[in-house]
Design a protein around this nucleic acid. Structure first.
Length: 241
DNA sequence: AAAAGCTTCAACCGCTACGCG
DNA sequence: CCGCGTAGCGGTTGAAGCTTT
């Protein structure tokens, strides 16, 4: 499972999303005390930038995998599980963050209709998205919206949905049209706020680069701004092992 | 201005699957 | 088979931010 060379090389040409740095702005806080009651050596709670750097650095030099040993060897006072989660959901260079596009929403709908809550299976079809992110997206946005839709249906107020559907020529099988209906609703519902959030992203961050050429699987969403890690952390930090 | 309520999402937990000796 | 270690999954939690009152 150790993939030293591949992960190292992919890492060095990596990019990080805006929100990665934004996170530290938001989370400019002390990590919550974070030790479990039975094992004072194990830290819990939000990761600090220092911990992230240690993990990134370690993986850049040794590759990922065998997380328990990695956790020990890197000197992090975290469980292997925690390291794995942090890496896969957040630090991995190809993690794509930010708003979920309409295309992705549609895909999530379709795949969820097919497979249900198989988040990781669904995530495999959305490059750069993590199961956690999709799960959160579904729970916070879709389920809420479904409830609203349910309520309005109960009030016999579902005629405008089919109107919308007609207007957008989304005519397919009944199941797909349901998916399309939902997606359209989500689109109109969520796009503005997402866009606002994105545009209000800090502009004081380092050089924002267009990664469309270097990140092959990041080309779906043109809303996204990425920059190379070199813009943020000097490379010597990563090679200092 | 501030308190209350709501939303978001990173991180944790418990569990299962799998591989290996 | 059994036991152990590891990887991975899906559900849940709770802190922080945001919005409403």
């Amino acid at each position: 499972m150790i993939s030293t060379s591949s992960s190292s090389s992919s890492f060095s040409s990596s990019s990080f999303s805006l929100s990665y740095v934004h996170m530290y702005k938001i989370m400019d806080k002390k990590p919550c005390n974070s030790s479990s009651s039975h094992d004072p050596e194990v830290r819990k709670g939000p990761w600090t930038m220092e911990e992230d750097l240690i993990l990134i650095n370690y993986i850049a030099n040794h590759g990922e995998g065998v997380w328990n040993s990695l956790a020990k060897a890197s000197g992090l006072k975290r469980t292997g599980k925690s390291c794995r989660l942090r890496w896969l959901n957040y630090l991995r260079p190809d993690v794509r963050r930010g708003n979920i596009t309409t295309e992705e929403q549609l895909l999530i709908f379709e795949l969820h209709a097919k497979w249900g809550n198989r988040w990781s299976k669904i995530a495999k079809h959305l490059p750069g998205r993590t199961d956690n992110e999709i799960k959160n997206f579904w729970r916070t946005r879709i389920q809420k919206h479904m409830k609203q839709a349910e309520n309005s249906q109960q009030q016999g107020n579902n005629s405008n949905i089919s109107e919308t559907n007609d207007h957008h020529h989304h005519q397919a099988s009944s199941s797909t049209s349901l998916v399309s209906n939902m997606a359209l609703q989500i689109e109109t519902y969520s796009a503005p706020s997402y866009q606002e959030n994105l545009e209000s992203f800090p502009t004081q961050f380092p050089t924002i680069t267009d990664q469309s050429s270097s990140c092959t699987n990041h080309n779906i969403n043109s809303n996204h701004n990425y920059w190379n890690i070199e813009d943020f952390w000097p490379m010597q930090l990563l090679n200092g092992d």
